[in-house]
């Protein structure tokens, strides 16, 4: 066995330095022009009927986020939504009950706090204010907290935010019943806020006397998550 003792002649062209510096320059330039390129890429993706461009990095459309290992399925028979806390008439609603209530359809952009945006997305469902009125909110109530049948996710709104007309208990997304991957059969939809406020797999609405920060808010995200005015971001408002 020999030891690799000898050296090749020193000198030669410092290609390594050029490649590394070139890549760093490319990266820095990409950070600078990335927002524009991303917008251009989104425009192409939006106009692509084959959907193939959705496979590109940062491709358009929704991304699937779940904080738990697996989420149970709830069906017509097994799904319930409870409304309780500081209310006069606590209630448990089934899917059919929710469908029989007044519906509102909103078409707004969806904006995630991590940057992706899905333009002109129709959501349809029961205005949250309607459910609160039905239950009869007691004096002294200040906030609403939401729980989910994934067993982990929570969210919250002030009572004033919860009563906005662009806050829905959504049953339909893009005019079809919300699928499990999108948080179906029922999810919250808070149009003016970052999408983490729109809790998926909604199963409980509790009226409280103070805001209880939700899952991501315990992990550093803003409780009042207005699009463009929170979390250090300046996206165009969605509602």
């Amino acid at each position: 066995m020999d030891v690799d003792g000898s050296e090749e002649p020193r000198g030669g062209t410092p290609v390594g330095r050029r490649v590394v510096l070139g890549l760093l320059g490319l990266g820095a330039a990409g950070v600078a022009v990335g927002p524009y390129l991303q917008r251009a890429q989104d425009a192409v993706t939006a106009a692509d009927p084959t959907g193939l461009t959705g496979l590109l990095p940062g491709g358009g459309g929704f991304r699937y986020y779940s904080v738990t290992a697996s989420v149970p399925n709830r069906t017509e028979e097994t799904y319930t939504l409870t409304v309780d806390g500081l209310v006069d008439r606590p209630a448990t609603h089934r899917l059919a009950d929710l469908r029989a209530m007044p519906q509102r359809r909103l078409v707004r952009d969806v904006q995630c706090v991590t940057g992706w945006r899905v333009p002109d997305t129709p959501f349809e469902g029961v205005p949250l204010a309607h459910l609160l009125d039905r239950a009869g909110v007691r004096p002294g109530a200040k906030a609403v907290s939401f729980s989910c049948f994934d067993g982990a996710y929570t969210e919250s709104l002030t009572l004033e935010q919860a009563r906005r007309e662009d806050v829905l208990v959504a049953l339909k997304l893009q005019d079809t019943p919300i699928t499990h991957a999108h948080g179906g059969p029922v999810r919250l939809y808070v149009a003016p806020m970052y999408f983490y406020k729109s809790a998926k797999w909604l199963s409980g609405i509790t009226v409280t006397d103070a805001v209880r920060p939700g899952y991501w808010e315990e992990n550093g995200y803003d409780v009042d998550a207005w699009v463009g005015r929170s979390n250090g971001r300046d996206d165009a408002p969605t509602s």
Partner: peptide
């Protein structure tokens, strides 16, 4: 934030 959008863009493409 604009830097972060750009950084995400570069991070995604470089990862690929």
């Amino acid at each position: 934030p604009a830097w972060r959008t750009g950084a995400t863009f570069v991070h995604d493409w470089f990862a690929l």
